[in-house]
């Protein structure tokens, strides 16, 4: 059976097309800002094209992500932690916890058997970290790739506020004003974001040292993943195509019988 999962996120839309537990295609595109509905359709078409099948061949489609209701064509919806949990136990059956850090939200989902009993979400002051990192990469003109390639000690002893992104940016600007090399400023920002994210991870449901899967767009940023590992002491397992975690989960749930709530 062919099923599909659509993850309409804050910044990007991800689609996974699945046939009997095997991935047929993946597609990723921008979330289109105010035009998310159109953007979702565009990524959906791209995924179908890559899989080489018409939409009618997809038996069931499940949507997730904060824009899940923008996927008109989906048969059902699931919340993001459920999708994360399903995907994590699929790629790594021994997984005891999954952490998903995207453009807007950071989530910690402990796994017990098949169910998700509890989640910890980023609070107001640490929301939008992924989007903030992109913004700062542009602001420092070093690009997301440049930011991800930073060495662990790139900050050169510089620090910025790790409690609030508004203060963090202000501190970064003050460092620039003192003509601190921008790589050091970027390093300081990465460290601050690791502290911020670690506070979410250590908040309510602390993942085990081994056996925690990391999903989300943040996995593209090697420097931040390393900083987060060092800060939290957790040996995160980063699967391939980790940014598709939620979409994969949705596609798996679509294949499970009665796996998702019908669309409202």
């Amino acid at each position: 059976m062919v099923t599909a999962g659509v993850d309409a996120g804050f910044e990007s839309v991800k689609v996974v097309v699945l046939e009997d537990g095997k991935v047929l295609s993946r597609a990723l595109g921008t979330s289109g800002g105010l035009e998310r509905k159109k953007a979702v359709l565009a990524v959906w078409d791209e995924a179908l094209k890559a899989a080489g099948i018409p939409a009618s061949s997809v038996a069931r489609t499940v949507a997730t992500g904060q824009g899940k209701y923008d996927a008109d064509f989906a048969d059902g919806c699931v919340t993001e932690p459920i999708a994360d949990g399903r995907a994590a136990s699929f790629v790594f059956p021994e997984a005891e916890s999954v952490v998903d850090i995207g453009a807007d939200q950071a989530r910690v989902v402990p796994l017990k058997g098949d169910g998700v009993l509890q989640t910890a979400l980023s609070q107001k002051c640490s929301s939008g970290i992924g989007a903030f990192i992109r913004h700062m990469a542009g602001r420092l003109e070093i690009g997301l790739d440049g930011l991800g390639a930073l060495a662990p000690d790139a900050c050169g002893g510089k620090t910025v506020n790790d409690g609030c992104i508004v203060f963090a940016e202000l501190d970064a600007l003050e460092l620039l004003n003192q003509n601190v090399p921008r790589k050091e400023v970027a390093g300081a920002l990465i460290n601050a974001m690791a502290v911020r994210l670690n506070s979410v991870i250590q908040d309510k449901v602390v993942p085990p040292r081994d056996g925690a899967v990391l999903f989300g767009g943040i996995t593209k940023n090697a420097a931040l993943v390393e900083a987060l590992k060092a800060r939290s002491g957790i040996n995160f397992i980063v699967p391939e195509h980790a940014e598709y975690g939620c979409a994969l989960g949705a596609a798996l749930i679509a294949a499970d019988e009665g796996g998702a709530a019908p669309k409202q």
């Binding site: 804050f10 105010l34 998310r36 904060q66 824009g67 209701y69 923008d70 807007d104 107001k124 929301s127 939008g128 989007a131």
Partner: peptide
């Protein structure tokens, strides 16, 4: 900012 994006739900 996140609240504004939330309005799009």
């Amino acid at each position: 900012n996140p609240e504004t994006i939330g309005l799009l739900r």
